[in-house]
Amino acid sequence: MLERVLSSALASAAVAAGSLLAAAPAHAATYQTTASALNVRSDAYLSAAVVKVLSGPASVEVDCQKSGDSVTAGSRTTTWWAHLPAHGGYVTVAYLNTTETKLSGVPECVVDPEPPMDDVTLADVQAMFGSRIANPSIVQTGLPSLNQAMRDAQINTPYRKAAFLATLVHESRLEYNIREIGDTRPYGGRGYIQLTGDFNYGPAGRYFGIDLLGNPDLALSLQWSAPIARWYWTVARTINPYADNLDMGRVNAAIGYPAGAEDQRRCDSFKNALRYLTGSVPSGIICTRPAALRGDTSKLTRSQFAALAKQGSGLG
């Protein structure tokens, strides 16, 4: 952690220099977009933040390309994304006027092998949670999409990161593709957040424009597992404020299982994560739930849960 902190100034300078180079490419190829409203994303992933929407078709300049999430448009499927320096982001090659799945003559973007300063690494989560990280290779594969989901969800403070990661390590061992063991229900637990119930699969699918009810295994795919965890944390529930208050009781209740011994286990993991991220365990951590939230809260709507969570709360 100390080494990563000491390198922050150098990392910031490198990012700034890279941005300047991207803004003024030595050579750029011109393409037409083929969509009427095309998302320009901050990275080559469908979970990445939308930085702009291009009306179109439009003429765009591409200075480099990188591999990311797979996108299908018509009969063409590609994992390649074009960087548009004038628009500060990436669009999938699937919506450019070419039959290619990778643009010929366009160089690959130079990717810094070091993760962004604030990204969580495999070494980080192993230090936080020890043997709970049972399949390091799977965790490593999922971390880029999980880190992007955390950025999108504003999980950007030690308290929020500790609460989110402690929750997921108990839900899924931080494995994006895990299915709840022994659960044969059509809408049983899947993915990072262990999405459960048609009352969650339906709204999550509508939010992302995918058919989760018809194809629930999308919830444990690399493409959608992390975005769905972000959706649950910020849309189905509003959990960041509970983390800000060090209130793991309400965080646990928001996940949707009855109170019991598991609450303390998750609170202990929260403390371990905080100790690693901040160097100490702050005072004021709340591990128990208010009485109104001790039952199974999984089927409550966002507003119903929020109303119960306010009882006895200082959140206002």
Rank of each mutant, 00 (worst) to 15 (best):
L2D: 14
E3C: 05
A9H: 08
S12N: 05
V15K: 13
A16Y: 06
A23G: 14
A26K: 05
A29T: 14
T30K: 11
Q32W: 03
S36L: 07
N39S: 11
A49W: 12
Q65M: 04
G68H: 01
S70R: 01
V71S: 01
T78A: 06
W81L: 09
A82T: 03
Y90A: 03
V93C: 04
Y95F: 14
L96F: 06
G105A: 05
D112T: 04
D112E: 12
E114N: 10
D119R: 08
V125P: 11
Q126C: 01
P136R: 11
G142M: 06
S145M: 12
Q148N: 04
A149V: 06
Q154H: 15
Q154C: 02
K161N: 02
L168C: 06
S172P: 08
L174V: 09
P186E: 09
R190C: 03
Q194W: 09
Q194G: 01
L195Q: 02
G197W: 12
D198N: 09
D198H: 11
R206E: 11
P216D: 04
S221H: 05
R230Y: 06
Y232W: 09
Y232D: 07
R237D: 04
T238L: 04
N245L: 15
L246T: 02
L246A: 03
R250N: 10
I255R: 14
Y257Q: 15
G260A: 12
D263Y: 10
R265C: 00
R266N: 03
Y276K: 13
L277W: 12
I285A: 02
T288F: 13
P290K: 05
T301A: 10
R302K: 13
Q304T: 11
A306N: 15
L308G: 12
A309N: 05
G314S: 15
